[in-house]
């Protein structure tokens, strides 16, 4: 009996959150089914193209290539961003001295550097990885600095009083304490990285999902363009959902704290900037 109720609960829960998306997709399918417009091909045909291109075409290879660039770029950004953030965030004067410089560098649109880097370094993977790493670096750095600053002084004093060695202090005290903010930074950086991944493939690339989309659009292959664009959207959604899961796992202790944690969390959410 009880199991059945739980199952019903889960199903009702699921229905509550997916009825609208499902209805909209059906509406799109229905409205576009007889479409003769060149620019809005029937959704069913776009899906068919998507499946065909992944199974028989090169789309899968393009996607994997883009994802590997994104992963390597993000890895560099996380390592350098967190390391620099831990150093700068430790000393308040140090942070204040660097804040105008960092605020300016952060405000530079990362997309602006793409044509220069790509044209100078060529069409390989390295310039794309560099661009992704550079753009993702700033949100991670600034959030790490904020996270280190927000660490409770009592925690630091305790660590000092017990003469915790520097190595242990960094990995057992400073890093976990700043982790919620660092994860928020990585979440923003992921969105930035995704945008840069696509833009960097718009410029003189011969592979990757961004190349696939522009190439299709210049060939006026509208269905392929739509298919590639929807795939990028799906990829963004899957990546951010996976990251959210990872964040919940890693920060279960943080989300469990109640009361004051919720206000802290509010502050954390509001600190982060948009992606794009």
């Amino acid at each position: 009996m009880f199991v059945r109720y739980v199952v019903v609960d889960i199903v009702v829960d699921l229905l509550r959150s997916i009825w609208l998306p499902v209805c909209l997709v059906l509406l799109w399918l229905y409205a576009s089914s007889g479409s003769t417009s060149v620019y809005f091909p029937p959704l069913a045909e776009i899906f068919a193209t998507l499946v065909r291109e992944i199974v028989h075409g090169d789309l899968g290879r393009h996607l994997l290539l883009s994802l590997s660039n994104l992963a390597v770029g993000m890895a560099f950004a996380i390592v350098f961003g967190v390391a620099c953030g831990l150093v700068i965030g430790r000393a308040e004067t140090w942070r204040r001295i660097w804040s105008p410089t960092l605020n300016f560098l952060r405000a530079v649109p990362p997309a602006a550097i793409v044509p220069i880097i790509i044209i100078a370094l060529g069409v390989g993977a390295a310039p794309k990885i560099f661009v992704i790493a550079l753009g993702s670096f700033w949100p991670i750095l600034l959030n790490t600095i904020d996270g280190v600053r927000g660490t409770s002084p009592a925690l630091i004093e305790t660590a000092r009083a017990y003469r915790i060695p520097a190595f242990l202090f960094v990995f057992r005290v400073a890093l976990p304490a700043a982790l919620p903010q660092i994860m928020a930074g990585i979440r923003v950086a992921l969105a930035v990285g995704l945008v840069l991944m696509v833009i960097s493939e718009f410029f003189g690339a011969d592979a990757g999902i961004g190349f696939y989309i522009t190439d299709a659009s210049t060939r006026f292959a509208i269905q392929e363009t739509w298919a590639g664009t929807l795939l990028v959207g799906a990829m963004g959604y899957v990546l951010s959902s996976l990251f959210l899961q990872l964040e919940r796992r890693l920060l279960f202790w943080y989300f469990q704290e109640d009361g004051q944690a919720s206000s802290k969390r509010k502050g954390r959410r509001n600190k982060v900037g948009g992606g794009q």
Binding site: L20, W226, G275
Partner: peptide, 22 residues
């Protein structure tokens, strides 16, 4: 809010620049 959450999550994680060719 429940019904739109998925759509909003999709929209927020969509890199708008990828829409550019379309």
């Amino acid at each position: 809010e429940r019904a739109t959450r998925m759509l909003i999550d999709f929209g927020r994680s969509f890199p708008v620049i990828a829409l550019l060719p379309i």
